[in-house]
């Protein structure tokens, strides 16, 4: 089980959290301007890297707030967790 640092509550066990998938995906401002391929990218295509991954988590059984994290999918090691709206931290180049 992962130990995840909620930016509001501190370190808590993974069971208190819900996973929210890839972070920093913005809903199109003008949905009517989007074609099928744009919607496919927005709805279906996700980064699936073997390495550093920016993702959303929600401390559902705690403060219930969303936040972002950068995690290495090879080791499940967290580089950082940060509040919504804050920029993603620099990730190591590996």
């Amino acid at each position: 089980m992962l130990i995840i640092r909620c930016p509001y509550c501190g370190e808590r066990p993974e069971l208190e959290f819900a996973y929210g998938g890839q972070a920093h995906i913005a809903r199109p401002l003008q949905p009517s301007d989007q074609n099928d391929e744009d919607w496919n990218v927005y709805l279906n295509l996700r980064a699936n890297p073997k390495g550093w991954h920016s993702e959303r988590w929600r401390h559902i059984h705690g403060c219930a707030r969303f936040f972002n994290a950068v995690r290495d999918t090879r080791t499940d090691h967290f580089l950082a967790t940060y509040k919504m709206g804050e920029p993603a931290p620099e990730v190591p180049s590996t």
Binding site: A18, N48, E55, R71, T73
Partner: peptide, 9 residues
């Protein structure tokens, strides 16, 4: 089951 998060471990 699967874990909730994507991973290659």
């Amino acid at each position: 089951g699967t874990d909730v998060y994507t991973s290659y471990t």
